[in-house]
């Protein structure tokens, strides 16, 4: 972008530019930057409730010795490592199938698969909790189909509870990501696929060699967004486990731990602020690595 930075044109550009962006910057400054700086200041304090005093790096030291924090961190990373790839791959496959104009009823399929996105996080968590109840519809269906002989302890076994959370998030967000890929795919000239097909390139190779490279910017974008979402996971776990992150902290996430430190346990706002900064740092690192990985492969 070339433009004059001096003289009246430059100033004209500047004044108008600032006027257009000022409202948002003001709001973000007031309601995000100011509180997050305040939060940083709090993270160097410790104490009970309102009786806080300066504690230096004591909170950071405490992180290392806190098994619950380690557990919440591991859980959050597990969700991220397992759930995000499953969802992205599933969304990509569905998008590339639905991009084919010869599919009968593709509008219907697209709408159906996107539908979960209209539910609120609270509503679908409540729904899933009912569906995955010990005698609920999922277990009884699986039993009828002969898949299982005794009910799966979805909400009461540490492993299955994690699986349930992953199923729930995948249900809610796959369609959302799929729409992004579909939109991007429609910008790709279909004749590329036709040529490849005529040349005898099999469907799987067309997917890995044409679709994925062309969609890379969108995949990157959705991956970063999903990473941020997963690391901040709260509503689902809160409503599925009655705010506890159980059983035995198996579903506890960092955000839920922060919530517990603030509202359920003896309130220690300083330590809670420190844990919240762990999320900030993690998101920053992961986003950086994802951009870095995408750029490396470009070379």
């Amino acid at each position: 972008m070339v433009h004059a930075r001096r003289g009246s044109i430059g100033r004209y550009y500047d004044v108008n530019g600032w006027l257009f962006v000022a409202p948002v910057l003001g709001l973000i400054g007031l309601f995000m930057i100011y509180p997050i700086v305040w939060s940083l200041w709090m993270s160097f304090q410790s104490g009970r409730g309102m009786m806080m005093k300066f504690a230096g790096f004591a909170n950071i030291v405490r992180l290392w010795n806190d098994p619950v924090f380690i557990k919440a961190l591991t859980n959050t990373m597990t969700y991220f490592v397992v759930q995000v790839p499953i969802m992205i791959v599933l969304a990509l496959i569905l998008a590339s199938i639905l991009n084919n104009p010869r599919i009968v009823g593709r509008g219907l399929f697209r709408t159906a698969i996107f539908l979960p996105c209209v539910t609120s996080l609270v509503a679908y968590s409540v729904l899933f909790k009912g569906m995955f109840a010990p005698d609920g519809v999922v277990n009884s269906t699986l039993a009828t189909l002969g898949v299982i002989s005794s009910p799966i302890p979805w909400l009461t076994h540490p492993f299955w509870a994690k699986v349930l959370v992953i199923i729930a998030i995948t249900w809610r967000w796959t369609g959302y990501n799929m729409i992004f890929y579909l939109a991007a795919l429609q910008n790709i000239d279909r004749s590329i696929y036709e040529v490849a097909r005529i040349d005898g390139v099999p469907a799987w190779a067309r997917f890995t060699h044409i679709t994925i490279p062309l969609l890379k910017p969108v995949i990157l974008f959705t991956t970063v967004i999903s990473t941020i979402g997963t690391l901040q996971l709260f509503d689902e776990v809160y409503n599925l486990t009655e705010g506890r992150g159980g059983p035995s902290n198996a579903t506890l996430t960092l955000s839920l731990y922060i919530y517990n430190l603030t509202f359920r346990f003896m309130p220690n706002f300083g330590y809670a602020a420190t844990v919240s900064y762990v999320i900030v740092v993690l998101v920053a690192l992961l986003a950086f690595f994802q951009f870095f990985a995408a750029r490396e492969r470009d070379k």
């Binding site: 309601f31 995000m32 930057i33 939060s39 955000s255 602020a273 900064y277 999320i279 900030v280």
Partner: peptide, 16 residues
């Protein structure tokens, strides 16, 4: 500004 996407709401709620 795009960096603010990384800020978890949990870190904002008490100051807000």
């Amino acid at each position: 500004m795009l960096l603010t996407l990384m800020i978890p709401f949990a870190a904002l709620m008490i100051p807000l």
